[in-house]
Design a protein around this nucleic acid. Sequence first.
DNA 1: CCCCTCTGAGACGGAATGTCCCATAGTAAG
DNA 2: CTTACTATGGGACATTCCGTCTCAGAGGGG
Lengths: 195, 195
Amino acid sequence: MEDRTDPRLVRSRDAMVLAATALLTEGGLEAVTHQAVAARAGVGRATVYRHWPGLLDLRLAALEAGMPPLPPMPEELRAASGNDPRAELVHRLGVLAERWDDEQAGAVLAAILGGSRHDEGMRRLRESLLNQIADALRPAVTAAVERGQLRSDVTPETFAMATAGPLFFERFLAGNRLGRDTVDAVVDAAMRGWS
Amino acid sequence: MEDRTDPRLVRSRDAMVLAATALLTEGGLEAVTHQAVAARAGVGRATVYRHWPGLLDLRLAALEAGMPPLPPMPEELRAASGNDPRAELVHRLGVLAERWDDEQAGAVLAAILGGSRHDEGMRRLRESLLNQIADALRPAVTAAVERGQLRSDVTPETFAMATAGPLFFERFLAGNRLGRDTVDAVVDAAMRGWS
DNA sequence: CCCCTCTGAGACGGAATGTCCCATAGTAAG
DNA sequence: CTTACTATGGGACATTCCGTCTCAGAGGGG
């Protein structure tokens, strides 16, 4: 259990990760190479190799950095919505939609989708992403099921498919930005369709 | 309007496109390079450059070849279903799901999603893909609207989002294969949710 | 049969990749 | 402040890849 806190190490590391995510956003995963990261971060080429010996390691680091966890639901907001499952679902999917509207998220998602079929690390990222979404919806979905607003066989995973699916489609296949009205319509249709 | 029918030309071209799609399926878009295609197709490296001077041209050709149009709805099937919009929607989305279950389609889709943000050609491919889906659903959606089975403001594009979206999510984010039951449940929920 | 086009093979200069070494500067401990 | 240590930057190096060019020969059309 090493405690690597050498400031030089974290400094250069941060600079490299920052450069890598920027390159990823601008030019896709292919643009993330040891050389490009070194140049962008103002760092020696050998340093990048020292931190991430393999190209996949480097790219994985960029993807992880570009995929921070979703913020948890603020407790006061939950109370303010009167513990209404529908309102909570709209809020959580709204946060997700906001995240997906970001350029960086698009680059990360596309890269993970493409890479997860060939690389184990990216497969893990994809699964963690999926769990992130399902977990964000879990409490509200469970509550909605208990109140009879959703069929009892509807799991958070199913509901994620029914809501995040259309949002994903609209954002990344149709290329449209996600407005609050879209989120609202999707949640509405899903609750009606799966009850 | 040239009529290039030199057998040598089409022969080598076909071999290269075949090799390119295979490489795309196996290793993603990055695996498609002039060198790799030449080796795989048993063709001189210069020949690949002659046909597609740029790397993007080459990759675009591979993507186009891996994205054939959806087959039209057979007229007898349409009659057999008694012109029932719901049955037609299930059928068309079933065809789409089958297509997406194929390995090659996954590679193509992921590549298009990732590349369409930086390349004009891929953006066109993405749009054509979207239109393909919307067009496949158009007649049935229109019929369903006319019969009051869907709200009058539901367009084929909206319905595509509501159905192809979840299927896409389930297939490429959750990583599950698409069974007939999934298609059925999704169409069912969408028709209930958007009516 | 001849002419033309496409092809395969290879040479080439340039760029990128991966590995190594070493002098130096920043860091932690005495 | 001094000392031992460690990460860094820069460069050398061999190797591979990339894009372009040339040229002889095979395949096709008239």
